[in-house]
């Protein structure tokens, strides 16, 4: 017995190692439930406040670039407003009650990574600002991610640069849809799969968010086709896409609140039940 204790005294660190390594492996495997287990709201608030302080100081050095980006977006939006105004004049709106479907909540990215296979970013808005899980997040030039976990003042979002977050996308000109799935190779590029080969595509074509996603409004920029090959196994294109959002310099973003999501989800779920 005494020898046993001696042995444990000598090699106890191996037991400790096995125990801690087991905990770490469980965390790796249960990664999808991870936020609910470990990333409590308290830690979210602490790290969030720290990153906010850091990003505030960094902001001063990036003001010029950020201004240009926002000015660009302003110009684009101005053009769109002009366009939709002219459409309203030519359409008979009588009897139609226009309802706003989307609200955009402006927020800032305060912590971001692009070097992992599953990247996340933190924004400086939370429950208090109306952020809810599963809201889409877009940058001035394209899609950025989706809200995952919300605390009072912060929210952690899954980045488009995350191998476990596919996005439904479509070609702008033909509306054929496919799936954007990041391959963890470069933060500048992503891959689009499942667009059938009878669709004519060429480098330079734009991909946008599809109407089938309840995360983003239809028509938000995603990327531009860089090159493509055909997958011999399933006969679909594998398209290399240059992302329009610059993930290595993600700052100003907007969370998208889709007002009819509950209604859409409910009606879609009711059909699902009928099928079974």
């Amino acid at each position: 017995m005494q020898n046993l204790f001696k042995l444990i005294g000598k090699f106890g660190f191996v037991l400790l190692f096995i125990l801690l390594e087991a905990i770490a492996f469980i965390l790796v495997v249960r990664r999808s439930n991870y936020h609910r287990v470990i990333f409590s709201e308290a830690t979210s608030e602490i790290t969030g406040n720290f990153f906010k302080l850091y990003s505030n100081t960094r902001d001063y050095f990036k003001l010029r670039a950020e201004n240009e980006l926002l000015a660009e977006e302003n110009a684009r939006l101005r053009a769109e407003v002009q366009y939709s105004k002219s459409r309203f004049y030519t359409t008979n709106l009588e009897g139609i009650n226009p309802i706003q479907a989307y609200t955009y909540i402006p927020c800032k990215v305060i912590n971001n990574s692009t070097r992992y296979a599953r990247n996340f970013f933190t924004i400086d808005a939370g429950k208090m600002h109306g952020i809810k899980p599963d809201m889409g997040v877009i940058s001035p030039n394209g899609i950025a991610g989706v809200v995952r976990q919300v605390s009072d003042r912060f929210a952690v979002c899954i980045s488009v640069l995350n191998t476990s977050f596919p996005v439904s996308v479509q070609l702008r000109k033909s509306k054929d849809y496919g799936s954007l799935e990041w391959d963890a190779v470069s933060p500048l590029y992503s891959t689009v799969k499942y667009i059938p080969t009878h669709v004519a595509i060429e480098p330079g074509d734009t991909l946008e968010t599809s109407a089938y996603s309840s995360i983003y409004p239809e028509g938000i920029d995603v990327g531009v086709i860089e090159s493509f090959t055909i997958n011999p196994d399933d006969g679909y294109y594998i398209i290399k896409v240059r992302l329009t959002t610059r993930f290595t310099a993600l700052r100003q973003v907007y969370a998208v609140d889709y007002h009819f999501r509950k209604e859409q989800d409910a009606i879609e779920d009711s059909i699902k039940n009928e099928r079974q």
Binding site: V14, L20, E21, V29, Y116
Partner: peptide, 20 residues
Amino acid sequence: YDLIYHTGGAHAAATCFLAL
């Protein structure tokens, strides 16, 4: 580092092994 970069337990497992 797992907590701030949301990497599950990958950093913890690797660094714990490094320690051994």
